[in-house]
Amino acid sequence: MAEQYTTRQNQTWDVIAKEVYGDEKYTEQLMKNNLDKIDIFVFSAGTVLNTPEIETQQKEDVNLPEWRR
């Protein structure tokens, strides 16, 4: 996994988290690793974000419907 990610025009934190880490639930971790850009909601093209490897193991949640597991 790359340690940096360069944004495309009009991307948002959740879209980037899904692309980099496979799920938008990692948006908070992505934001914590880029506090200097926390005020940006919609990115312009060419912004470089730090994307260090994070723990992305998904534990099966028995409360989720089967199609979401």
Rank of each mutant, 00 (worst) to 15 (best):
K37R: 04
T12R: 15
A2Y: 02
L30W: 00
D23L: 01
E28L: 07
L49H: 05
Q57A: 12
E24A: 15
K59N: 07
K18I: 14
M1D: 15
F43D: 00
W13Y: 02
D23H: 05
R8D: 14
Q58W: 07
N34A: 03
K25I: 10
E19W: 08
Q4P: 03
L64M: 13
T51F: 05
Y21E: 04
A17Y: 02
I40F: 04
T51L: 04
R68I: 03
A45R: 08
P52G: 07
A45V: 00
R8M: 14
N33V: 02
E28F: 06
N10Q: 14
D36F: 13
I16G: 00
N10K: 13
N33G: 01
A2E: 12
E66I: 04
E3R: 12
G46S: 08
E3D: 13
G22E: 09
I54N: 02
Y5K: 01
E28I: 04
K32D: 15
M1I: 13
V20G: 01
K37Q: 11
T51K: 01
E53N: 07
D39L: 12
P65Q: 05
A45G: 08
F41P: 00
M31R: 10
Y5N: 06
R69A: 11
E24I: 14
E53K: 08
E55L: 00
K59W: 13
F41V: 08
Q11P: 06
E19V: 13
T27Q: 12
N50K: 10
L30H: 00
K37V: 11
M1Y: 11
D23E: 14
Y5V: 05
S44C: 06
Q58H: 06
K32T: 11
A17M: 07
V48M: 07
E53C: 10
I40Q: 03
V20Q: 01
N34I: 05
D36L: 14
Q11V: 06
E19D: 10
E60L: 04
Q4G: 10
E3V: 05
K59L: 04
I54V: 06
K59D: 07
E55R: 06
A45N: 12
N63G: 08
E55D: 14
T6R: 01
P52L: 13
T27I: 00
D36Q: 05
